[in-house]
Design a protein around this nucleic acid. Structure first.
Lengths: 206, 206
DNA sequence: GCACTACTTGACCATTTGGTCAAGAAATTT
DNA sequence: AAATTTCTTGACCAAATGGTCAAGTAGTGC
């Protein structure tokens, strides 16, 4: 028998659970699951440690629920990628959305990055299940565009990987990027660069 | 007064310290500094915990010395990037070396990635000092090629970032990449893709 | 106001973990 | 082989940490 937890959705429950999620996102994205402590999360949420445990089963449960609640948001841009008369613009819009997410949701990006680097023990099934299915679907869409000559030919999977890599880099390695750029805001210049990069990659030759 | 540590370089000291570094690279790259334990490191090195402390000041010291000892190796490819009659081939060779490192040294890649994601508290000075200087130098080299019309114009800093991002992605997100590719070895197909990507990006238009 | 439920927390506990220490086992030197 | 130094570890400790619990404090419906 697990201890009873609040299941309803009173105002107070929504607020406190949200506060815990916010705090947990801060802490987990900075230190990973193992490096984070309940005390840190509780302090940053403005709650006592037992109070946090009142709302969640424990540290691991917070982490897992947080990851799962963010997964949908995280892959939404890829889901939105759909057939279009202008495949290049469609893909560049995807690139732009991903770059916007790196700018506006860096903690989420780092959270997923850390989870992936550590072999994704908590979302492995999602990755090799629904995410793979989604990737196959979108790769087929892109392949179709390539076959129709509307897009330069290349490997659709690696294309998506390279979009992920270049855009997420600005969130995950923010410190390094900013140190090297010495004060200049990366997001002032990155959009133009990545657009150029992928436009050249996608545009069929002459 | 800090406790005396072995300073000489006897055979046994070299071997044991190396064994600890190897084990630490495993453990730190999987869990980060805070997520790793001395017991894990000791066990994987085949030593007792006090024995590990005999060779290093402590957990943090192992981490820091490991990071620093790997830094040189890690940035060596960028140092090697130098002036050439064929700038595109020179840069593509750099891309290839970085991709080879992702394939052959994934633990090192993940170690640095985790450190960066966590705001690089242990190598910040290196990043904003020597690494920035190196980047400025290489960016100027690349800018020179662009000004001479031998390379398509773009932002040299972002160009290097995108090379880092795309190549390191295959090491850091190995699990995800392999899950999506369903058994196919990423490194069979990645080299061609990244070469195409950057060749198109670098080749001046008509 | 009263009864009842939802919420909150100080004090506490068991385990994990970074690190110490004294004493012994191997090497090495003389 | 005796003396000396280097290496090794079982037992131990203090702090950190995930989690519990009983007792109390708000809310809420009547």
């Amino acid at each position: 028998m697990t201890k009873p937890r609040p299941t309803g959705t009173t105002r107070i429950q929504r607020e406190k659970r949200q506060a815990i999620f916010d705090a947990a996102l801060d802490v987990f994205s900075e230190n990973g699951l193992r490096g984070a402590t309940l005390d840190q999360i509780a302090a940053r949420a403005g709650l006592s440690k037992p109070n946090v445990i009142y709302y969640f089963e424990g540290k691991e449960a917070i982490y897992k629920e947080l990851l799962e609640s963010l997964l949908d948001i995280w892959i939404a841009p890829l889901i939105e990628l759909s057939d279009s008369d202008e495949p290049i613009e469609e893909l560049l819009a995807y690139v732009r959305r991903k770059l916007d997410m790196s700018r506006d949701m860096p903690r989420e990006s780092r959270l997923f990055a850390t989870e992936m680097i550590q072999a994704a023990p908590h979302i492995r099934e999602v990755i090799s299940g629904p995410l793979k299915t989604l990737m196959d679907e979108k790769a087929a869409l892109i392949q179709g565009w390539m076959d129709a000559g509307r897009l330069a030919k290349s490997d659709p999977y690696h294309l998506i990987f390279s979009i992920w890599a270049t855009t997420q880099h600005y969130a995950d390695f923010d410190v390094q990027v900013r140190a090297v750029l010495a004060g200049q805001d990366p997001f002032d210049t990155a959009p133009d660069f990545v657009e150029t990069l992928f436009r050249r990659m996608l545009t069929p030759l002459g």
